[in-house]
């Protein structure tokens, strides 16, 4: 299935999710991507990506933490599933494998 491979943006969003732990909801993810990666992304893009990842079973979401902010609305907090973690690792491993095969790109060797 096509969904076995992660897209670049998907990978980015998932990693940010893992990083943010309990704070991984839409607007925080956008902020974090801006802080860590210096990249502006649109909120709707993040949402749509997360819903797609949820369809694939790579993330889970729960509604939680109503505060007086946000008009009293709860946040949809996302959590990467164990399947998600595995796919992330595999992606990284495959990529590193590819890198190691190209000595020219590796300045230390």
């Amino acid at each position: 299935m096509k969904g076995d491979n992660l897209g670049e943006f998907e990978e980015l969003v998932m990693l940010t999710c893992v990083l943010l732990k309990n704070e991984a909801y839409g607007i925080r993810i956008v902020e974090e991507i801006f802080n860590k990666m210096d990249r502006r992304v649109n909120l709707s893009a993040v949402h749509v990506t997360l819903y797609r990842l949820e369809d694939k079973g790579l993330v889970n979401s729960t509604m939680m933490g109503a505060t007086s902010q946000r008009g009293g609305r709860r946040k949809r907090v996302f959590e990467v599933t164990s399947l998600g973690i595995r796919i992330l690792r595999e992606t990284k491993a495959k990529r590193e494998n590819l890198w190691s095969l190209i000595p020219e790109l590796n300045p230390q060797s």
Binding site: G26, H47, Y51, Q69, R70, R73, R74, K75, R76
Partner: peptide, 16 residues
Amino acid sequence: HLQEGILGDLLEQYEL
């Protein structure tokens, strides 16, 4: 089912 999360995020952004 998605409204609450999305609207919440939009409002938070708005407040910021």
